[in-house]
Amino acid sequence: MKNVSKLIAFSLIAMIIAAIVDLAMFHQHGTPLLSGEVLWRVLLIIILWVVVVALAALRMRFCGYVTILVMIYYAFADYGGLITVRPRASAYGLAIEILCVIGIVVSLIGVWYGIQQRLDYDREKVREKIAHETKRK
């Protein structure tokens, strides 16, 4: 259960950073932040986080895989912001670049916790099988 709380914390941080970076990139390109395109994208980022948290809380079989995919999505969103931010040498550009790097690192940590989540699930099932076999004897 300790892994689940860490996973939720890191996925929350990665989600917030990805949303901020996306908003900054839309703003940079002159897209109104209350447009449907922007709101849909931010909503998608939030929905993905809710799915990760729900599956982690329910301890479903494929929750680790979903977590890994969502964390990779967040990392790519941050990488996209890192390579497209303009002007790079301004305080704004440097702040976004630093935020993107932090987001990528946090997302990679989230991938690690997703892998651990899957391994924990497998270990739990093996223990249950051993306990069941022991009971039968």
Rank of each mutant, 00 (worst) to 15 (best):
T67W: 01
V42I: 14
V21C: 01
A75M: 10
I130A: 09
C100R: 00
L108N: 08
G30S: 07
S90P: 09
I83N: 04
E97W: 00
V4A: 10
V111S: 00
K135C: 09
M1V: 04
N3I: 13
V85G: 07
H27A: 14
R86H: 11
A95G: 02
R118H: 15
W49G: 15
I130K: 11
R123F: 11
I20Y: 10
D120A: 08
M71R: 06
K137G: 13
D78W: 00
S90A: 09
K125N: 15
R136E: 11
Q117K: 11
L99T: 08
D122V: 11
R123E: 14
K135M: 14
R127C: 05
F26H: 12
V52M: 01
I46T: 07
Y79S: 06
E97H: 01
I115G: 03
I47A: 11
A131C: 02
A14K: 01
I46Y: 07
V106H: 01
I68Y: 01
R136S: 12
P32S: 02
G30I: 07
E37R: 12
G64N: 01
S90T: 12
I17G: 03
N3V: 10
E97Y: 00
R118V: 02
V51W: 08
M60H: 13
A19Y: 02
S11W: 02
D22Q: 04
A75L: 02
Y73R: 00
L39A: 04
Y65Q: 09
L7Q: 12
L44V: 11
A19C: 14
R41V: 12
Q117S: 10
D78C: 15
D120R: 00
G114Y: 02
S11E: 07
I115V: 13
A56D: 07
I130D: 12
S90N: 06
Y92F: 15
R123W: 08
L44P: 02
I68W: 00
R86T: 14
G30V: 07
F62C: 05
L43F: 12
I83K: 09
F76S: 07
G114R: 03
A9W: 10
L58T: 15
L7S: 12
L82H: 09
G36N: 10
T31F: 09
V101Y: 04
